[in-house]
Amino acid sequence: MITSIKKRYWAIHYEWVVKKAAAQQAQGFGLHNTFILPTSFGWSTIAVAICLFVLGTNYQNNIVLSLSYLLLALNLLSLFHNYFFFTQHKVDVTRPIPDYANRKPHLKLSISSSGTYSGGELNFIIEGLIYNYPVSIKKGHHKDNFDIRLPKHPRGIHYLGKITVNGIYGFGLFKCWSYIVPDDPLVVYPAVEKQAAILHKMNDDVSGKEASDSQISISDNLQGIRQHQKTDPLHHVSWKHVAKGQGLLSKDFNESTGISGWLLLRDFLDLPIEKALMILCFQVQELSRDKVSFGLDLGSHKILPNSGEKHLKECLLSLASYSAESNNNAKAATIAS
């Protein structure tokens, strides 16, 4: 009962936050979306001010009373300073860079300031973790990038949810905060596991059922050495020759050109699905690097053979978003065949 009420509460809260933050990637702060309350230190000073008022009144001690008023005045001014400090900033969440499951993904924030206040701190709370950004934007230096290394995420497409931004300035008596809800999800590809790729030739009917496939082994056949060209990948550079002082030469591989085929998930049905996806993740990158035209068959979802950066991204995205349900469907299809 309580759990369901809690869930309902958080659902309403989240909806409200999304509405309030207006789903902006780049967000300026103002009266419409900024909240302000004393920090624990602020509450303590207010409590002390009240205690001192009582103490000063009881002892009829004007200096103690003055101290109490000084604390109250500090709190009052801090409220305004903190608000103006916070609202001078604008936070721009750039599209999260896709990363692999065994690595900590980066989230880049661009923070700009209209520069009235220098110093202070901004904190970003993402998925319960606090990332502290000591403001280093000086007057006249209006933008700064803040690179957040998120914790490792499992393979998949993750919506980061609301990002809480809070700002503390001056004596740390007040805290302003607001929410940003990024539109773009964080894509996490499977981690990679090395294994040589086996391409399957298929009939035009790519449904898989009637496919009479033959296997093509891919190996790195070195054809020769040639002058390095700007478009050559760095790992084709023959460093041996560079070391000997013979200039920048590239290894020329010829095997891949003209080969076309399919990578099949069902090749790895005996393995756990995540491991299979990791192997495929390695293979699509290798094939793409070698400019092989290949297709990807994940059972329910297929990507037609192609090559290039866009194709690679499409394949990786499919691997990242592959769900267990479609896997089951694929298994069922295999069993049926």
């Binding site: 230190f41 220098s118 110093g119 202070g120 701190e121 000591p134 403001v135 280093s136 503390i168 300035y169 001056g170 004596f171 740390g172 008596l173």
Partner: peptide, 15 residues
Amino acid sequence: VAFLLNAGNLRSKPS
């Protein structure tokens, strides 16, 4: 002291 705790990258003199 309270200011220095939240000064960010502001040095001690400007703080």
